[in-house]
């Protein structure tokens, strides 16, 4: 599934001034245009408040657009009926940033992963037994074990929870996965495992990724193309190598420079020290 975002803007209404007037609105997204090729990984880089979360919500139709179009496989989503949108939801899934907050604490792993199957039972009719089998299959696919089936989220580590989140997203066999900072809450060692898992899943299942992150290292590792967003505007976009090796905008250059490198010799402070 390919995704085309054309001239999308989102303005949040300003504060009320007096009885009828409103202050100037806040432009969370300003004329964003980008396209995600089928089967590729597209990275979206931005800091907090850049509008990357708003864009995700717009793609998922959790927010409405102020202007522009979002096209899935060439179809404008605003032209779809509510049944068609539900169908679309099944093909378009999301993995959230915080594995602690995105799983319902009162549900077992089985119920969490099976939930999309229950919701979309009209598209994918399954018996309860088939659902359980599918959940098992998914758990093994993301590197969890069968014995985890009827446990609760709080019994798992952050990395395991994120695997559960990935299993849930994969349950209805989607083609397109939005990954909203899926590893930023995890330890680096666990992050490496999850990134490798995502990479393997993409190859096995032919998924298209829309990967949101503020970590340039992670983007570089996973993505083919990248777009840099700053205060609701796209600063630059293109293939990962060209953007990272030859950034055109000051903002991208600043981001690259600010990224802490684990090599002490690259520290901006240490240069000062050695010069003393």
């Amino acid at each position: 599934m390919s995704l085309d975002i054309r001239n999308v803007s989102k303005v949040f209404p300003g504060q009320r001034t007096g009885m009828f007037g409103r202050g100037e609105g806040f432009h969370a997204l300003d004329d964003i245009t980008l396209s995600v090729r089928k089967g590729s990984s597209f990275g979206l880089v931005g800091e907090s408040g850049s509008g990357k979360t708003t864009l995700t919500r717009c793609i998922l139709r959790l927010d409405t657009l102020s202007a522009g179009q979002i096209l899935y496989d060439g179809t404008d989503m605003s032209s779809l009926s509510s049944t068609e949108i539900r169908r679309l939801r099944a093909r378009l899934q999301i993995v959230f940033q915080d594995p602690y907050a995105s799983l319902d604490p009162r549900m077992t792993i089985h119920d969490i992963v099976a939930e999309p199957l229950v919701i979309h039972r009209d598209i994918l009719p399954m018996t309860a037994r088939q659902r359980t089998d599918r959940v098992m299959e998914l758990l093994l696919q993301v590197g969890l074990q069968a014995e985890h089936l009827f446990r609760y989220p709080h019994e798992f580590s952050g990395g395991q929870r994120q695997r559960i989140g990935i299993a849930r997203a994969l349950a209805v066999k989607p083609e397109f996965l939005i990954l909203d900072e899926p590893t930023s809450a995890l330890d680096v060692s666990v992050q490496a495992d999850v990134l490798n898992l995502l990479h393997r899943l993409q190859q096995d299942l032919g998924l298209t990724y829309f990967f949101i992150s503020h970590d340039l290292g992670v983007i570089r590792y996973i993505c083919d193309d990248v777009a840099v967003i700053y205060r609701g505007k796209l600063v630059e976009q293109g293939p990962v190598e060209s953007i990272f090796d030859n950034p055109q905008s000051d903002y991208t250059r600043m981001l690259l420079a600010a990224m802490p490198d684990p090599d002490p010799d690259r520290s901006p402070f240490r240069k000062v020290l050695s010069a003393d």
Binding site: L62, R89, I94, A101, S102, L103, E115, H120, G165
Partner: peptide, 17 residues
């Protein structure tokens, strides 16, 4: 506004669920 509720909405769950 909790994330697991947003997650359920993103999965396509209706309000009664």
């Amino acid at each position: 506004e909790e994330q697991f509720i947003v997650a359920a909405r993103a999965l396509g769950a209706g309000w009664p669920r």
